[in-house]
Design a protein around this nucleic acid. Structure first.
Length: 627
RNA sequence: GCCGACAUAGCUCAGCGGUAGAGCAGCUGUUUCGUAAACAGCAGGUCCGCAGUUCGAAUCUGCGUGUCGGCUCCA
């Protein structure tokens, strides 16, 4: 789903010329076929030479699978980011050993240098072709296209097929000239996938593969995958003693002291920003009667995803969001047009009953805390306020060295409320973007059920894209459904606009992403332990404690390694814990009362007086940036 | 929730029908060392849980729980 935004990078659609190598890109962005449609199923994702090669590799893989497993029914096999997949209906589950055999067959097909040949059949012949070969999924695609043509009053286009060697498939193309043009490839994984993504339809087996122009590119990609695995926050979270998961509360993290330190540090930074920006922090109940969610519209949309609690014949739920409750504070008194903006922030614990199969480390959890806020403004203030919020996003992300990118998610099909209000909300967001001179991509129908939104993305150190912050302009849910009003200068009742915003998003997820982005080596200001003092021998321990005291006086987080290990071992231990600074203390340093810091990058810094060193670290930590 | 796989010491993993093993971490002792691993010893386990098959189950089967890779979903 984030693929579209990724492909277009930070450039606004209207400000960037299409890339010469990828002439179809802009078109692809805006004419992306509707999800699950027959058009989408035929769209092989081949929008560039590389994509064409990837899709061609999918054909070659299908050829191999059919040869090894006669009678296999084919789903679809598009190019995707970094590779391709193909879905198959097979008689038995595939195993990793099967992948090796398939790869071997594929290699033979590539070596045979078989040309890809396109041909067209009249629609009815095309349908018969796949019906005869017992390919019901292909027949279904063609039937859908025919139905669509009838509905549109157009004529059914001819069926296009691509053939290489013994294999011929329904396909819009394009393809590379021949199988010999296929670069180095590797099959990566087997997984399940439903036909057309619908869990009520047949379950197919999907094989993922990757293919590149050169061995170097393939190696680079495989390295990135291996590196991502090494950086996996679930692995590093254990190694760095940050958090853990236990089956007594699936989908919920247990925060260890060091992880909690990172959490508190992030939260403190955000609170400092919010105080500066005039936010007022509030706190609302976690256990709330279901009538609140009926009123907000959440019950209708997310009934199954809320944890229910029955109390004395009444149904309550653990709150999945903070927003509706903030309206009770808003309505606790009469509001004047002079009062705005009213900025309520809240770090409430939220619970969402995510389906068991979707849980994943810190990035997909059942309970979490957002740096949430609801800002109530007059309509004339919305543009300025959104501009200011975009500034908050940029500031907060600069603390961790990330550059935000922006997307505009518009009204979805399940939207509630007056369409005119939606139109207005979307218009106001566009104006805010223009006023802030910020470029963005549009994600049609990707808004929430109550508001269009600005979604903020980042690319991490491995080039992976993550959705982070969100800013939503709500003219419907809080204002209308909860009847929010204020008195204007003429004494008349007016509706405010409610902006929902979260900058880190969920703290759990944000920390998980940071762990992977930094590979556990947090910048000084965030590191749970900022420096380790390493006494060389036991006689240096007292001085080490004294130095630690000097550092702690300045608010720095310091440990002294008093173990009986050798200095080299202590350095290695600190290094593995990714501690930013190690300070070895021996006879020489103690006599001169100096510190010779070693950074975790392995750099030996010049000796300096204890106080100078402490002041330097404290200043670096306060500056809250990436070194 | 669905498809597939996996679950053995704190961590990483071996063992795969005959009563449980290694490395690292931990503890104890020796060592007091100059920028990424000193040496020795000790301790550590309802082999995820519950049933079943078997003379005998960590090992085979079923059910449950959790995790992983995907699908779907993500206010």
């Amino acid at each position: 789903m984030t693929d579209i935004a990724k492909r277009t990078g930070t450039d606004a659609p209207d400000s960037s010329a299409p890339d010469a190598d990828e002439p179809e890109l802009e078109e692809a962005l805006f004419d992306a076929p509707e999800r699950g449609s027959a058009d989408e199923l035929l769209d092989a994702g081949a929008h560039s030479e590389l994509d064409a090669m990837r899709h061609s590799t999918a054909h070659v893989m299908a050829e191999a699978v059919i040869e090894l497993f006669p009678g296999t029914q084919l789903g679809i096999g598009p190019a995707i980011a970094d590779g391709f997949y193909y879905d198959f209906k097979l008689d038995r589950p595939l195993t990793p050993a099967d992948l090796a055999a398939i790869e071997e067959r594929m290699a033979a097909s590539v070596a045979a240098d078989q040309p890809f040949v396109r041909r067209e059949l009249p629609p009815e012949e095309g349908r018969a072709f796949f019906a005869e070969r017992n390919q019901p999924f292909k027949v279904e695609i063609l039937d859908d296209l025919a139905a669509k043509a009838t509905a549109d009053g157009t004529s059914m286009p001819p069926t296009t097929l691509y053939q290489h060697g013994p294999f011929e498939d329904l396909c819009k193309g394009p393809h590379v000239a021949s199988t010999a043009k296929i670069g180095p490839f590797k099959l990566l994984a087997i997984s399940g996938a439903y036909w057309r993504g619908d869990e009520k339809r047949p379950a197919l087996q999907r094989i993922y593969g990757t293919v590149w122009q050169s061995q170097e590119d393939l190696d680079g990609y495989l390295w990135r995958r291996a590196e991502a695995k090494k950086r996996d926050h679930r692995r590093l979270g254990v190694a760095l003693d940050l958090f853990s998961f236990h089956d007594v509360s699936p989908g919920s993290a247990f925060w260890h002291p060091k992880g909690q330190k990172i959490w508190r540090t992030l939260e403190a930074a955000m609170r400092e920003l919010q105080d500066r920006r005039g936010y007022q922090e509030v706190s609302t109940p976690i256990l709330v009667h279901k009538k609140l969610w009926e009123q907000s519209g959440h019950w209708a949309n997310y009934d199954d995803n809320m944890f229910r609690v029955e109390v004395e014949d009444q149904t309550f739920s653990l709150k999945p969001m903070n927003c509706p409750e903030s309206t009770y504070i808003y309505r606790s008194k009469l509001r004047s047009y002079r009062d705005f903006p009213i900025r309520y922030s809240e770090y409430g614990r939220l619970h969402r009953n995510e389906r068991s199969g979707t849980l994943s480390g810190l990035t997909r959890v059942r309970q979490f805390i957002q740096d949430d806020a609801h800002v109530f403004v007059r309509p004339d203030q919305l543009t300025d306020e959104i501009g200011a919020l975009l500034g908050e996003v940029r500031e907060a992300y600069s603390w961790v060295g990330l550059t935000p990118r922006f997307a505009f998610a518009t009204k979805p099909d399940k939207a509630i409320g007056d369409p005119a209000l939606w139109e207005r909300a979307e218009q106001l967001i566009k104006e805010a973007f223009a006023a802030a001179d910020i470029s963005y991509v549009v994600k049609p129908k990707d808004g929430t059920f109550y508001a269009p939104k600005i979604d903020i993305y980042i690319d991490d150190a491995l080039g992976r894209e993550w959705q982070m912050a969100t800013i939503q302009a709500d003219l419907v849910m809080l204002p209308e459904r909860f009847d929010l009003t204020y008195v204007d200068e003429d004494g008349k009742q007016q509706r405010p606009i409610a902006i929902h915003r979260a900058i880190y998003g969920s703290l759990e997820r944000f920390i998980g992403i940071l762990v992977e982005h930094f590979a556990g080596a947090f910048p000084l200001w965030l590191a749970p332990v900022q420096a380790v003092v390493v006494p060389i021998a036991d006689r240096h321990i007292d001085a080490a404690r004294e130095l630690a005291g000097v550092l702690r006086e300045r608010g720095l987080r310091v440990e002294v390694d008093e173990s009986s290990n050798r200095m080299q071992y202590k350095i290695r231990a600190a290094q593995e814990q990714k501690v930013p600074y190690m300070v070895v203390l021996g006879d020489r340093e103690i006599e001169a009362r100096t510190a010779s810091p070693r950074t975790r990058a392995g750099e030996q810094q010049p000796a300096e007086a204890w106080e100078t060193f402490a002041d330097r670290l404290a200043a670096e930590s306060r500056a809250r940036g990436v070194a």
